[in-house]
Amino acid sequence: MREEKIGVIQIYAPQSGRTTEEKEHFYEMLQAAIDLFNERLKIFVIGDWNGHVGVDRVGYEDVIGVFGVGERVLDFCTLNNLKIMNTFFQHRESHKWTWYGWSNDRGEYVCRSMIDLIVCNDKRNISNVKSIPSESMDADHRLVVAKLTFKKLRSRPPPKRRRLNLVKLKEGEIKQRLNGKIADEVTTIDGECELLNVNEDEVADHWEMGEVRNDESLEITSNEVKAAIKRMKNGKSAGCDGLPAEIFKEAEETLLPYLVSMFNAAYKTATVPAEWSKALICPIFKKGDRTVCSNYREISFLPHMGKVYERILEARLRIVLKRSWVNGNMVFDQEEAPQT
């Protein structure tokens, strides 16, 4: 059934000559088996019920069809909202009987009944049920066949990603509402947050540029933050925080004091919030077999908040390197000059 699951229970009920206790025990076991299934699951109970259904449908219209034969045993099906599908399709008499009683004295079948039943909780999945009178295989039961039909499951489309109409941010009213919302929601940074520790010795060894200096007097200014935001490109995908670069530009004046405070806290402690290092990774197919992972390249989307901070540090490093680079050579202080 591919993705669709069904529940099938095959039974052999006690014969009519068995004790009442044995029959009650059988139906208790059958009820326990049905209770194990989810009520939304399609359930099929098939086999020899050793019980009869009747032609009188009064009170049982949902359980049996108009083509039933024999006597009645319907309480169990009514309790569990099951349909006896043998009775819902019109066939000639020989295609209804599933059991024949043979008389050795008379040398012929003297009784017949419909006791091999196909029962389900959703009759829409069965389009035909009948017995095959010519297929007995030297037994008193006849082969019962059913035609099942299942609709092809529709694959659910992936949830659409909510897209922001960033062009409207340039409209005066929208921009004013944005800044007002930010002013109401954003609060002054206070207390500790989860930080990503930075080892200065490891950084120095990696870049081989000597001691990492952390001058607490060199605070990040609002002009540096403005310059970094101005350099950010529009139309770039946001990171896990969902904030595009356009938000920082259009709400710059409102966000500026909070950004300056946050960046200075990160600069003085040589740490950054762990969220800035979290990336959304999107695999892009290149060529070849789509089932091979090496045929994809990954694109990482980082939060723009961390990118603004990176641009500030990068601008400062460029100033330092520019001052130290003279005539194509790196100039060191006397005490930092390499030994030759």
Rank of each mutant, 00 (worst) to 15 (best):
L74V: 13
L74G: 04
L74A: 06
L74K: 00
L74E: 11
F76S: 15
C77Y: 08
C77L: 07
T78M: 04
L79A: 15
L79Q: 14
N80I: 11
N80F: 15
N80V: 06
N81G: 12
L82C: 07
L82G: 06
I84S: 01
I84V: 15
M85K: 00
F88E: 09
F89T: 02
Q90W: 04
Q90P: 03
H91R: 07
H91M: 13
H91D: 07
R92Y: 00
R92L: 04
E93N: 13
K96P: 00
W97H: 12
T98M: 02
W99I: 15
W99G: 01
N104S: 12
R106I: 05
G107A: 03
Y109L: 00
R112W: 08
R112G: 00
M114D: 07
D116G: 06
I118L: 14
I118N: 11
V119K: 00
C120S: 11
N121L: 01
D122H: 14
D122L: 09
K123A: 07
R124H: 07
I126K: 13
I126C: 09
I126R: 04
S127F: 11
S127L: 12
S127N: 07
N128I: 04
N128P: 04
V129W: 06
V129A: 03
K130A: 10
K130F: 15
K130E: 15
K130T: 11
S131L: 01
I132V: 08
I132W: 03
P133M: 08
E135H: 05
E135R: 08
E135P: 04
E135A: 12
E135T: 10
M137F: 13
D138T: 07
A139Q: 10
A139P: 06
